[in-house]
Design a protein around this nucleic acid. Structure first.
Lengths: 171, 171
DNA sequence: CATTTTTATCTTGACGTCGAGATACTCTAG
DNA sequence: CTAGAGTATCTCGACGTCAAGATAAAAATG
């Protein structure tokens, strides 16, 4: 019986180089974490491509999706939005400005707090984000195509364990 | 016997919201891919923190590490460097400028091609990247702490399968 | 009530990246 | 040998983000 040939990827190349140069280090963590980082980068690009079809940028989708998830009437304050999307307030002001210019959201005064503003999805914005989301999921399903349902569940469980410490530590 | 309680993370929250708002969509891919993206973002921040100790920025480490991996005499052309670090040429020029100003690399003329330049690690640059790499791995090991070796190998194998299509598609 | 602290959003300037174009040199074909 | 194509690097203007600070309103304190 022959050895099972496992195909290499870029991270294998990376790790091999480090092992050669620094045999004193235990580079095992890279097997998991470097792959997570690289996969995420690839996913970002794939996402951008999927959104191109809809004339949307990734950052636009992020904002619209947060509003869409909030449910009717699809309103969220800028403060809530920046917590959801993990950007700073200056960035969010800029994003809402541009989305408003494109007619995908609008700014309303918060009736309960005169400092506040509510950002609301327009019907056009809702249509766009709904179409983009469906498309995104189709693409993502394709990327996972090779994986059995069982593998997907296993990896999801492990990833949840890895992410949780980060989700807990904040605020 | 009671139900095994699986703790929730932010992605569970996200998925739940989408299921509520769009029960027509199959959002299963998010279980894996959203977690990969979020984990990667957290890892970036953890990396930055680990490098802070050494007075290094993440982008600086990326360049120095590529040179370090190349082995003696720690030289790489800007072209090779930008393939390794996945940035554009304008960005690499800027990065090399700043690393040169910090005394961590130097620019040498390529003896075989007068258009070319070789970027070389200085001794100070090598010391910095070696220390930072050791530290980074220590931190990463801690992040993986909870995972059994078996789980680590399993997830690494699955991640490799997910990344490989991307690694292949680019010539 | 008046004062202070906190909260919510926007403004601004600095910075890093991108990407198109410029420049200089090398390689290939005839 | 020369013209044209290809390659390596740098230049530069546009853009998005960040982070500190400004402004305004609300909440807490006495």
């Amino acid at each position: 019986m022959g050895t099972l040939r496992i195909m290499e990827d870029e991270v294998d190349r990376l790790i091999e180089a480090w092992r050669r140069e620094r045999p004193d280090l235990d580079v095992a963590p890279m097997e998991v974490l470097s792959r997570v980082s690289r996969l995420a980068r690839h996913l970002d690009r794939a996402r951008s491509q999927a959104f191109d079809t809809h004339g949307l940028e990734s950052w636009e989708f992020d904002v619209l999706a947060a509003l869409r998830r909030a449910g009717t009437p699809y309103q969220l304050s800028p403060g809530k939005l920046l917590k959801e999307t993990l950007v700073t307030s200056g960035t969010m002001t800029n994003r809402v400005d541009r989305l408003t210019a494109r007619g995908l959201v609008e700014r309303l005064p918060d009736p309960h707090d005169r400092r506040g503003v509510l950002v609301q999805l327009t019907p056009a914005g809702r249509d766009k984000v709904d179409a983009a989301m469906a498309d995104l999921l189709t693409h993502e399903r394709a990327l996972l195509g090779g994986l059995s349902d069982d593998d997907q569940q296993k990896i999801a469980r492990v990833l949840r364990e890895l992410v949780r410490p980060f989700d807990l530590e904040k605020h």
